[in-house]
C-alpha cells in the first residue's frame, strides 16, 4: 500500500512554512500513522534531509502528546482515536493525506507538526488541582464516593489534554478542555472545597490565553479522542456563574502567558 503524505514543513516559529509531498510505502496496514512518519523519517535521514518533527510519547492514546490534522480533521477520520492509535488500514492505497499542525494563536507553532501547548498547562496551573495536607497517605476509603459520581468524574478525567478540541473549533475555543478539567475535580467530594475558586481562576486563565468563545456547536467533542461530551462545558459555565458570584469580593490573578522558547546554545 502506498500513500502520499503532504506535510506542513516549517523550520522554526519565525520561518515561513510550506506543504511538501512525500510518497510513503506503507509495508503493513497495522502500522500507525506515527509509525508511518517514522518510516518516512528514516528515509529522509538516509538521504541527509531533516526529519519531520512531530510530538509523541506513549503511542497508546493516553498521554496526549500526539496530534495533527489529517485532511482537515483533528486526529484523522476515525472517531475517538488519537493519531498514534490510527492504523493505516483505514486508508486506501494511493490516498493523499494532508498533515497540518493544530492552528491556534494560543498554540504557537514550534516546528513542522509540533505546537506549543503550554497555554493548557497554565490553565491547569491556575486551578486544576486539589489542595491536600501533607502527611500520611489518606485512607483509601475515608471519603465514600458513589459509583455514578465516580464514573462521571472518571469520564471527564479521561481528557488527555491533546488540544484537538481547540484545533477543531472554528472559534479556537478551549472550552471542552477547560470544562473537562474543571468538571472532573468539581464532581468529587475532594474537589468541592475549591470548586468556586477553581472555576473562576481557570476560566480567567483561559481568557487571558486568548482562546475564543464557545458557540455550543460541538465540533470539539466530534474530534475528541476521549469523546468528552459538551456537558462538561455546561458544567464549567455553571461552576463559573456560581463561582463568579460567590467569589465576587476576591482578587483573581492569572499567570502571564509566556510563549518564547529557550533554544540553548544551538
Amino acid at each position: 500500500m502506498k500513500v502520499k503524505l503532504t506535510i506542513w514543513r516549517q523550520k522554526n516559529p519565525d520561518s515561513k512554512g510550506q506543504f511538501i509531498t512525500y510518497p510513503v510505502d506503507v509495508v503493513n496496514g497495522e502500522m500507525s500513522m506515527l509509525e508511518c512518519l517514522d518510516v518516512l523519517n528514516e528515509t529522509l535521514m538516509g538521504r541527509g534531509e531533516e526529519p519531520v518533527a512531530f510530538e509523541h510519547d506513549c503511542r497508546e492514546g493516553i498521554c496526549g502528546s500526539c496530534g495533527f490534522m489529517i485532511n482537515g480533521i483533528a486526529h484523522g477520520p476515525l472517531p475517538a482515536t488519537t493519531v498514534c492509535q490510527l492504523t493505516m488500514r483505514h486508508f486506501k492505497d494511493g490516498d493523499e493525506l494532508v498533515l497540518e499542525p493544530w492552528r491556534s494563536r494560543s498554540f504557537p507553532l514550534v516546528k513542522d507538526l509540533v505546537v506549543d501547548r503550554r497555554s493548557f498547562d497554565r490553565i491547569i496551573q491556575a486551578g486544576g488541582y486539589v489542595s491536600v495536607s501533607t502527611g500520611n497517605a489518606p485512607d483509601g476509603n475515608a471519603i465514600p464516593v458513589g459509583k455514578e459520581i465516580a464514573d462521571r468524574a472518571m469520564d471527564a478525567a479521561a481528557c488527555i489534554g491533546c488540544g484537538a478540541c481547540v484545533a477543531a473549533c472554528p472559534n479556537g475555543s478551549a472550552a471542552l478542555f477547560t470544562g473537562a478539567k474543571i468538571a472532573h475535580l468539581g464532581i468529587l467530594p475532594q474537589g468541592k472545597p475549591e470548586q468556586d475558586r477553581r472555576a473562576v481562576r481557570m476560566v480567567a486563565q483561559m481568557n487571558v490565553e486568548g482562546f475564543g468563545s464557545c458557540t455550543n456547536i460541538g465540533e470539539c467533542t466530534g474530534v475528541c479522542p476521549k469523546e468528552i461530551p459538551l456537558e462538561e462545558i455546561a458544567r464549567m459555565n455553571r461552576d463559573y456563574l456560581l463561582g463568579a458570584w460567590r467569589e465576587r469580593g476576591n482578587v483573581v490573578t492569572a499567570i502571564a502567558p509566556v510563549t518564547d522558547w529557550n533554544f540553548g546554545e544551538k
Binding site: R118, R122, Q125, S173, V203, A204, M206, N207, V208, F211, G212, S213, C214, M236, N237, Y240, L241, A244, V251, V252, T253, A254, I255, A256, P257, V258, D260, W261, N262, F263, G264
Partner: peptide
Amino acid sequence: MSTAVAGQRENRTPSFWQSTNGKKAV
C-alpha cells in the same frame, strides 16, 4: 530545548462581562 521559562503572576483578569463565558450567559 528547555521549557524553563517561569510564568509571572499577572493581575489583570477579565471581569464577568469581559470573560467569554460571562458574555455567553448574557
